[in-house]
Simulated assay, not measured.
Amino acid sequence: MHYFSSDFKLGILGGGQLGKMLLYTTRRWDIQTFVLDPSSEAPSRFACNHFVQGDLKDFETVYQFGKKVDVLTIEIEHVNVEALKKLKSEGVKVYPEPEALEIIGNKCLQKSHYANHKIATAPFQNFESTADAKKVTTNFPCVWKSATGGYDGKGVKILKSIEDFSELPNVPCLIEELIDFEKELAVIVASSASGEQKSYPVVGMDFHPEANQVEFVVCPANI
């Protein structure tokens, strides 16, 4: 039995809680939803029309999933960007653009993008490995960030001495100057395909002082 009056298909890479929130909105419209997630217990599994269990970083898995839909979006940025580029070249609408995701998913590329476009950011240096960073880092405290795989404070470590390097994985990374700040704020700005833009309320974020992972997101921010 066909439950939809149109054949529009939306694909979502990632089936976590953010994907589930997105699906609450798609239910109001005439949209078939497809979700890809590695976990059989993903929160979005029972909120979408079609669920596929698979690796978000595997080229063939993402590519074959994307061929089933008209528009493909993400719930988490840690996905196979090369597959998205190929899908885009074949006519699948991919948002955000794969080229933007490539920067978003790599902190070293992010920081270089800021510097190249004269966007204010803390002084930093990119490294091919943590071992390389350890050889030349002399100013403490400082901040170590893994190039990929981090989110919500994961992949970030404040280094107070050279000994703290022993706790870190040997991966591509950057070392950043520790900045004294009062609040950490974030704002989402969305842009449509037609160029329309909209900004959403500023939120404040509180992080655990030791784990350095976000504990609370406060909206509206206390500013």
Rank of each mutant, 00 (worst) to 15 (best):
I188Y: 03
L174S: 10
S166F: 02
H208S: 06
G153H: 08
I119V: 14
G150A: 07
E163W: 04
I162V: 13
H117M: 01
S199A: 11
I188E: 07
H208N: 11
Q125M: 12
S161R: 05
D206H: 09
P123R: 07
K183P: 04
I158E: 02
S192D: 13
I175S: 11
S194V: 14
A122L: 05
G153I: 05
E176L: 04
S192R: 10
K134A: 14
F165D: 04
E176M: 05
F124E: 05
K154A: 07
Y200M: 12
V189G: 10
D180Y: 08
G149C: 08
Y200L: 15
T148H: 14
D132W: 00
W144E: 08
Y151K: 11
G149I: 09
K198I: 15
S199Q: 11
E177P: 05
P169H: 01
W144S: 11
N116F: 13
G195V: 06
P201H: 12
M205V: 02
N126M: 10
D152A: 11
S146V: 00
T137R: 10
N126D: 07
V156N: 10
S161K: 09
S194N: 12
P201I: 02
E182W: 03
A115K: 15
S161E: 04
N126K: 10
V187I: 15
S166Q: 07
D132G: 03
A131W: 00
S191W: 05
Y114F: 15
H113S: 13
H113A: 14
G149L: 07
F181V: 04
D152W: 09
N116Q: 14
K134T: 00
G149E: 08
F140T: 12
N139V: 11
W144A: 12
P169M: 01
L178N: 06
L185W: 00
F207T: 00
K160T: 09
P172V: 10
T121F: 04
A186C: 12
A193I: 12
A190P: 04
E184V: 03
S199H: 14
V187H: 00
P169F: 01
P123Q: 09
N170F: 01
Q125C: 11
D206T: 13
T138S: 14
E184L: 01
E128P: 06
E176A: 06
G195D: 08
A147N: 07
P172I: 08
E163F: 09
K154D: 07
A147R: 13
Y151Q: 12
N126T: 15
T121P: 00
D152H: 11
T121R: 07
E128K: 14
K118T: 14
D164A: 09
V156T: 12
S166T: 12
D206M: 08
K160A: 02
E184H: 00
D132N: 14
D164T: 06
A190F: 15
I119S: 02
A190C: 14
L159I: 09
V203R: 01
S192L: 02
N170Y: 03
V171S: 01
C142E: 10
N126L: 13
T130G: 13
L174W: 07
A193L: 11
P141M: 03
V156E: 02
Q125W: 02
T130R: 05
V136P: 01
D132P: 04
K160W: 10
L178H: 02
H208L: 00
E176P: 10
S191C: 13
I162T: 12
Y200W: 11
T130F: 05
K135Y: 04
Y151W: 06
S166A: 11
T148R: 15
